[in-house]
């Protein structure tokens, strides 16, 4: 465990996640010939939610109140596992890539039961769709991680950060992880983050009964999740400019920070372009897309054997 790295990564993830969200939103607005609310809008939104009173469903039990902190904790902890500044995970001795996936399952479990707890039908709808799509996303995510882990010889993120594009398996693995990122962050063409229209909503459906501070915490955590997935894409496939493991040189860390932020923003812009260029899929067409990601994942794992053997 590296306390310095950890001490850097916690504020990095928490404070930059809304900014990345703001940049994606603004870029999307520009692509769509709108001005957009500005890159700082997510900060204002979070500040607003955190200061407002919360309205809870009169049917809700303690599950509804416990879910936001558990959700946020699981996601923030998962985000601390991904290498950002250095070529290693801040917490390699505690948790690896499989735990990373498990933590998102923990977050999803709690948010889904909280959505059911409100007795509102929208909550049930969101939870039902979220767990169904996650069932397809999770295998794809794990297979991508395994395709990278097998040549690296370890499921630890520290070992999995290679020199970028490790072999032929990287192509399908990258494509699969991109689809997984789109699905996990609730973006078009799988979900639409900007609407509460019940025909299409997945993630937002679960949040419909949340308001005030708990809503702010959930949105903030969801933005951290987005940043964590972008960082994962960056670390596994474009680890350029990352400081060497154990490097204490401030300049190297600064360069690492810069490289990481630029890569993450570029990947975020790519998500924005995809979101603008494609229409949202009909809800039961989305599994086909995610299914393709799983097949690409199997292909990636297979390729690691063919290339090596």
């Amino acid at each position: 465990m590296d306390w310095l790295l950890l001490a850097l990564q916690i504020p990095l993830m928490l404070l930059l996640a809304p900014l990345v969200q703001g940049i994606i939103k603004t870029s999307k607005a520009r692509w769509q010939s709108r001005r957009g609310p500005g890159v700082l809008q997510p900060y204002r939104d979070i500040a607003k939610w955190l200061s407002r009173e919360s309205v809870a469903s009169d049917q809700a039990s303690w599950i509804f109140r416990a879910a936001p902190p558990v959700y946020a904790a699981a996601i923030l902890f998962a985000a601390l596992l991904v290498p950002t500044l250095e070529r290693r995970s801040p917490l390699p001795a505690i948790a690896d890539a499989i735990v990373f996936v498990g933590l998102f399952a923990l977050a999803r479990f709690w948010l889904a039961i909280a959505a059911l707890d409100t007795a509102s039908n929208f909550g049930g709808m969101g939870a039902s769709r979220e767990v169904a799509f996650a069932a397809l996303v999770e295998p794809a995510l794990l297979l991508v991680l395994f395709a990278v882990a097998l040549p690296a010889g370890s499921t630890s993120f520290s070992a999995m950060v290679g020199d970028g594009w490790p072999g032929a398996a990287a192509v399908p693995a990258f494509a699969a992880l991109l689809v997984v990122t789109i699905a996990e962050t609730g973006r078009v063409p799988v979900d639409n983050p900007d609407t509460h229209l019940e025909l299409t909503m997945i993630h937002e459906g679960m949040l419909l009964e949340y308001s005030g501070r708990p809503l702010g915490v959930i949105h903030w955590a969801t933005q951290v999740k987005q940043l964590a997935f972008l960082s994962l894409l960056a670390a596994l496939f474009f680890p350029w400019g990352m400081a060497d493991a154990g490097s204490r040189a401030p300049l190297a860390l600064l360069l690492g920070l810069l490289a990481w932020f630029v890569t993450v923003v570029v990947l975020g812009l790519l998500l924005g372009v995809i979101e603008t260029a494609y229409a949202k899929l009909r809800i039961f067409r989305a599994p086909d897309l995610i299914g393709v990601a799983s097949v690409l994942g199997v292909l990636a794992v297979m390729l690691t054997f063919v290339v090596e053997g």
């Binding site: 904790a73 902890f77 001795a93 505690i94 948790a95 630890s156």
Partner: peptide
Amino acid sequence: WLSGAYAPWAVVAGLV
């Protein structure tokens, strides 16, 4: 192999 690790106690501590 190398260092894929899972320390349940530490994960709980981290989550808290």
